[in-house]
C-alpha cells in the first residue's frame, strides 16, 4: 500500500541499506481498547524528508512516536537504521541515541539554561568532553539563529525561539533521523516561519526527517514524499506535487478539500 522509490545517494558504513525506517503491519491498541494503528506500513529512505499529514486522531503522532519507542505497539515490526525495535532496553537506548525528536510543546528543560539544555545529553549519554560539546552547541545555536540567547533560560524566550532551541538540542546528539511531531502547531502564526526556515535549512542536509505537520507550503517545498494517514492507517503516499494537485485516493481529496 505504501511503497515508493524516491531514494538518496547518501549511505553510512554501519548500515548500507538505503532504508532508514521500515515499518511493517504496525498495530497498536491503547489500554482502553482503542485501535490507534491498524497495520501501518511505511518505509523511509536515507536522507529523505517525509511529511505525514492527516486529520487529528488519525494516529500520525502515535505512529512516529513508535519510531523511538515513546509508544509501544502490539503487532508488526519496526526497524530503525538496521536495528529492530523490540523490548530489549539496550536496543531501545541505541535507537534513541540515533533518533532525535522535536515536540509540539517544545519540552525544553525549564530549570536549565539554553546551553545546558543542549549539552546535557551529549555529555551524559555520549560521554563527550564538556568543552567540546559546548563549542558544538554554540555553533548549533548560531545555525538556528539564536546564538546570543545561550545563557538565558527557556522561560525567557519566545515560542519560536524555544522551538529552535529544541531543534538545536536534538541536533546536538548528532542523530541520523529527526522526528518532528507538529513542531509549529503550538506557535503564534508570526513565529511559524522562523521555525520552518530552520527545518527547511536542515532538509538540505543528509539527515533523514519525518515531519508530522499541517503546513502545506512546507510539505510542497521540502518533502520528498507526502503521506496521508486517516483512521490509524496510511491512505496514500505520493510525491508532493502529485499529492496536492492530483491525489489518487478519494479520502485524500476530501482531506485536501478541508485544509486548502
Amino acid at each position: 500500500m505504501s511503497q515508493s522509490t524516491t531514494s538518496s545517494s547518501y549511505s553510512s558504513a554501519a548500515n548500507p541499506s538505503p532504508l532508514m525506517i521500515e515499518a511493517r503491519g504496525v498495530e497498536k491498541w491503547y489500554p482502553n481498547g482503542y485501535h490507534a494503528l491498524r497495520g501501518v506500513d511505511l518505509t523511509v529512505n536515507r536522507g529523505e524528508v517525509v511529511v505525514i499529514m492527516g486529520p487529528s486522531g488519525s494516529g500520525k503522532s502515535t505512529f512516529i512516536r513508535t519510531f523511538n519507542a515513546l509508544e509501544d505497539f502490539q503487532k508488526g515490526q519496526i526497524t530503525v537504521d538496521g536495528i529492530p525495535l523490540s523490548n530489549d532496553l539496550r536496543q531501545i537506548d541505541a535507537i534513541r541515541r540515533e533518533v532525535g525528536m522535536v515536540f509540539q510543546q517544545f519540552n525544553l528543560f525549564p530549570h536549565l539554561s539554553v546551553l545546558d539544555n543542549l549539552t546535557l545529553a551529549p555529555v551524559l549519554v555520549r560521554k563527550r568532553p564538556k568543552a567540546e560539546v559546548v563549542e558544538q552547541a554554540r555553533a548549533l545555536l548560531k545555525r538556528v539563529g539564536i546564538a546570543e540567547q545561550a545563557d538565558k533560560y527557556p522561560g525567557q524566550l519566545s515560542g519560536g525561539q524555544q522551538q529552535r532551541v529544541a531543534i538545536a538540542r536534538a541536533l546536538c546528539m548528532e542523530p541520523r533521523i529527526l522526528l518532528f511531531d507538529e513542531p509549529t502547531s503550538a506557535l503564534d502564526p508570526e513565529m511559524v516561519r522562523e521555525v520552518l526556515e530552520v527545518m527547511q535549512n536542515l532538509a538540505a542536509d543528509d539527515i533523514t526527517m519525518v515531519v508530522v505537520t499541517h503546513e502545506v507550503k512546507f510539505a510542497r517545498q521540502v518533502a520528498d514524499r507526502v503521506v496521508l494517514m486517516a483512521e490509524g492507517d496510511v491512505v496514500e503516499v505520493a510525491e508532493p506535487e502529485q499529492f496536492f494537485t492530483n491525489p489518487r485516493q478519494e479520502r485524500s481529496r476530501r482531506f485536501l478539500d478541508q485544509i486548502l
Binding site: 515513546l70 534513541r96 533518533v99 532525535g100 525528536m101 519540552n107 546535557l120 545529553a121 549519554v125 536534538a170
Partner: peptide
C-alpha cells in the same frame, strides 16, 4: 519523554 528521546 524529551529526556528519554535524547537517549537518557
Amino acid at each position: 519523554e524529551a529526556a528519554r528521546s535524547l537517549g537518557l
